[in-house]
């Protein structure tokens, strides 16, 4: 089932045409990987999906992006609710300068998801559990989150995103600042999370795309060159540009 549809999406940064006529469907409960060389527009596209590009003054988005059939760029859309439904995990772990507990509790708090302390405790505990972090931090929920290791911080950021109960989680190179062991943990986690969430992940690592995703979209110079089942894209790419990228010739 299609969760998000992008139709004729064009993005401009001032005069620069960063994304050209992108059409892409994101299917529910699947991991969709966006790959491509640096500057190809994959992160730009990801940030269109929760309107994070709104924060950039010179950025202009044209075209249609629909979540369950509703245009997310409709001026009447409530950004707060949109971002509650589409969560995001960033490239560099960015825990807030608060305790582990408060980091996870922040989203539910601003969205009013817990009516009592006990409910909040439940949300925090279950989010940390689902992010595979609870066992490691259960004795220091009150400690500053910035004291965790990089991999733990990134899982905390995933827990923070999960705590709001989004339908979609956008991940922007979530492992690029992590070592291989922490990366493996996150990848395993992504695989589990797709039971309950729809995931879109931007990655520089083709191996990672091949390991975690069901569908892969290849971007090049602002064009969506090819999209298909991950197996097909990596074994029988249609476009010669995809072929040369995955065999290491461009990018």
């Amino acid at each position: 089932m299609t969760k998000l549809t992008a139709r004729n999406v064009n993005v401009f940064y001032g005069d620069a045409h960063a994304l050209k006529q992108v059409n892409l469907d994101i299917r529910q409960n699947e991991v969709t990987a966006l790959i491509g060389p640096s500057g190809c527009g994959k992160s730009t596209f990801l940030r269109c999906l929760n309107r994070m590009n709104d924060l950039i003054e010179a950025c202009r988005v044209e075209g249609n992006i629909c979540l369950d059939g509703e245009d997310i760029y409709d001026p009447a859309v409530d950004l707060v609710y949109l971002r509650a439904r589409i969560g995001m995990v960033f490239q560099k772990p960015n825990p807030f300068p608060k305790s582990v507990y408060d980091n996870v509790a922040y989203g539910p708090k601003i969205h009013g998801l817990a009516s009592s302390r006990a409910e909040m405790d439940d949300i925090v505990t279950s989010s940390l559990e689902r992010a595979g972090l609870f066992e490691e931090v259960k004795d220091r929920l009150g400690a500053p989150a910035t004291g965790l290791s990089g991999g733990q911080q990134q899982r905390l950021c995933i827990a923070r995103a999960i705590a709001v109960c989004p339908e979609i989680i956008l991940m922007d190179e979530p492992c690029s600042a992590l070592d291989p062991i922490a990366t493996a943990r996150i990848e395993a986690l992504i695989d589990e999370l797709k039971q309950n969430f729809t995931i879109v992940i931007v990655t520089h690592s083709m191996q990672q795309a091949a390991r975690v995703s069901q569908r892969t979209a290849f971007f090049h110079l602002g064009d969506l060159v090819e999209v298909g089942d991950t197996d097909t894209v990596f074994t029988k790419p249609v476009d010669p540009r995809t072929e040369s990228y995955i065999s290491g010739h461009i990018g």
Binding site: L79, R83, A84, F90, K92, P95, I110
Partner: peptide, 14 residues
């Protein structure tokens, strides 16, 4: 850092 602001906006904070 801008990343902290983005983290909050990404959670739906105003």
């Amino acid at each position: 850092p801008q990343s902290l602001r983005e983290g909050a906006y990404g959670l739906g904070a105003t």
